[in-house]
Simulated scan of single mutants.
Amino acid sequence: MDHLNQGIQYMQEQKYEEAAQSFTKAIDENPNEPLGYINFGNLLLHMNDPERAERFFEKAIEVDQDAATAYYGLGNVYYEQEQYEKAQKPFQQAIQKGLEESDAYYMLGLTLLYQEQFKLAMPYLLRATELSPEDAEIHFQYGMCLAQVDLIDDAIGTFHKVIQLNDEHSDAHYNLGVALLYKEDPHQAMQHFEKALEIQPDHMLASHAKAKVEEALSQDSEE
């Protein structure tokens, strides 16, 4: 097994010191090959050392400007530090360089979502759902984006999809309840607030929403 694959195996086994040694050897043997730098960057990011990780990803790009996963790694460095605007460009570059994977589209969508650029985020999150149709969390974030631009019917359909994939997703139940309130369906909304609280008893938003709906329904019955 070569040093690169050995390092990856060590990483999977959580033997980080051995992984670092293997990646160092891989870089020494092939200093003009970006994968050694990229994997070392991934290791450092995993070990919460973003500053050094950034340098390794930048070195990989210096060696090969078409190394798509190096741009993706660099985007993750900034994303982990909540520098969403800074993360946006390398994620875009990763896709432009050919990284046709759901994670790339998802992370770019999230950086835009967290900058409240909802309309820009939508096509990337949609593409991520197409590439990972069974990933509940990707569908959930897409649903959140749809809700933010008032595409309520589409958001409701997407939250139903999330629950179909993972019925224990408390935030999906809560946000589906909110969307149903917009459609003036408080009884259905209440069921999802209750489900959210059943899954996560300390879900404060669901608890507050449930109390508000109960109060409104009580007033309606008295009138």
Rank of each mutant, 00 (worst) to 15 (best):
A68E: 08
A67N: 00
L131Q: 05
P50W: 05
K183N: 01
T69A: 08
N166W: 02
H173P: 03
Y16S: 00
V77Q: 01
K97P: 00
E51M: 11
E215M: 14
Q12D: 12
D171P: 02
Q92F: 12
F193T: 07
L120E: 15
D28V: 13
H187G: 10
G177C: 03
M204E: 13
Q12T: 11
N42M: 12
E85P: 00
D202P: 08
D150P: 01
V162M: 04
G143F: 04
V63S: 04
K183S: 10
E51C: 04
G73W: 02
Y142P: 07
H203L: 08
I138N: 04
Q191R: 13
I95K: 03
A121Y: 02
E184W: 00
I8G: 04
E101W: 04
V149H: 09
E100P: 01
T129D: 07
H139G: 01
V77G: 01
E184D: 13
Q12Y: 03
E214K: 12
L74F: 05
D154N: 12
T111L: 00
I61Y: 00
A147Y: 09
D66W: 04
K59I: 06
E130K: 14
S221L: 14
E223Y: 12
E168C: 05
E13S: 01
Q21F: 06
A211Q: 15
E215H: 14
A136F: 02
H139W: 12
A94L: 09
A136I: 05
L217C: 09
E184V: 11
A19H: 02
Q148I: 06
Q93C: 01
Y182E: 11
N30K: 12
Q88M: 14
A70R: 00
Y16A: 02
D154V: 07
G75T: 08
A209T: 09
E215V: 09
Y79C: 02
K25C: 08
E17P: 00
A211G: 14
A60P: 02
E13G: 01
S170Q: 08
F57H: 01
K15H: 08
L35D: 15
H208W: 15
A172R: 02
G98M: 09
Y142E: 09
F159K: 03
V213M: 10
M107Q: 12
E13W: 04
F57D: 01
T111G: 03
A87M: 07
E54L: 09
Q6S: 13
N166K: 11
P31C: 09
Y71P: 00
D220W: 13
N175W: 07
L99S: 05
A26K: 01
N30D: 12
L110Y: 04
P123V: 09
A70M: 00
I156R: 03
Y142H: 15
L44D: 06
A179W: 06
Y142Q: 10
Q148E: 15
S218A: 13
K161C: 07
Q219F: 12
E184C: 05
S102W: 14
F193L: 08
I27N: 08
K86M: 12
M47Q: 14
A60R: 04
L131Y: 03
G7A: 03
R52F: 10
A206N: 08
